[in-house]
Computed example of a mutant assay.
Amino acid sequence: FILLGLFNYSPLHLFLFSIIMVMFLVALSGNGLMMFLINVDSRLHSPMYFFLSWLSLMDLMLVSTIVPRMAADFLLGGGLISFTGCGLQILFFLTLLGDECFLLAFMAYDRYVAISNPLRYSVVMSQRTCWLMVAGSWLFGLVDGLIQAIFTLRFPYCSSQEIDHFFCEVPAVLKLACADTSLYETMIYVCCVLMLLLPFAVISASYLRILAAVLRMHSTEGRKKAFTTCSSHMIVVSLFYGAAMITYMRPQAYHSSKQDKVVSAFYTMITPMLNPLIYSLRNKEVAGALR
Rank of each mutant, 00 (worst) to 15 (best):
C130T: 06
C130R: 01
W131M: 03
W131L: 10
W131S: 03
W131A: 05
L132R: 08
L132E: 13
L132Q: 15
L132V: 05
M133G: 00
M133C: 14
M133R: 13
M133Y: 13
M133N: 09
V134Q: 02
A135P: 00
A135L: 10
A135I: 13
A135H: 02
G136Y: 11
S137Y: 02
W138Q: 06
W138L: 03
W138I: 09
W138F: 14
L139D: 08
L139S: 12
L139C: 10
F140V: 15
F140E: 06
F140Q: 11
F140H: 04
F140R: 14
F140S: 14
G141W: 01
G141A: 00
G141E: 02
G141P: 01
L142P: 02
L142K: 02
V143Q: 04
V143Y: 02
V143F: 11
V143C: 11
D144N: 08
D144A: 14
D144E: 07
D144G: 04
G145K: 00
G145A: 03
G145Q: 00
G145W: 03
G145Y: 01
L146F: 11
L146Y: 05
L146M: 08
I147D: 03
I147H: 00
Q148V: 12
Q148Y: 12
Q148D: 03
Q148G: 01
Q148H: 06
Q148K: 04
A149Q: 03
A149T: 01
I150K: 07
I150H: 08
I150E: 12
I150F: 10
F151Q: 14
F151E: 15
F151S: 05
T152N: 07
T152M: 13
L153G: 01
L153Y: 15
L153A: 09
L153K: 05
L153Q: 12
L153T: 11
L153M: 15
L153C: 11
R154K: 13
R154N: 10
R154Q: 15
R154F: 14
R154T: 15
R154C: 09
F155M: 04
F155C: 09
F155T: 01
F155W: 15
F155K: 07
P156Q: 10
P156H: 00
P156D: 02
P156E: 04
P156W: 04
P156N: 05
P156C: 07
P156V: 13
P156M: 06
Y157Q: 08
Y157D: 10
Y157K: 08
C158Y: 10
C158W: 09
C158T: 15
C158F: 14
S159H: 13
S159K: 12
S159A: 13
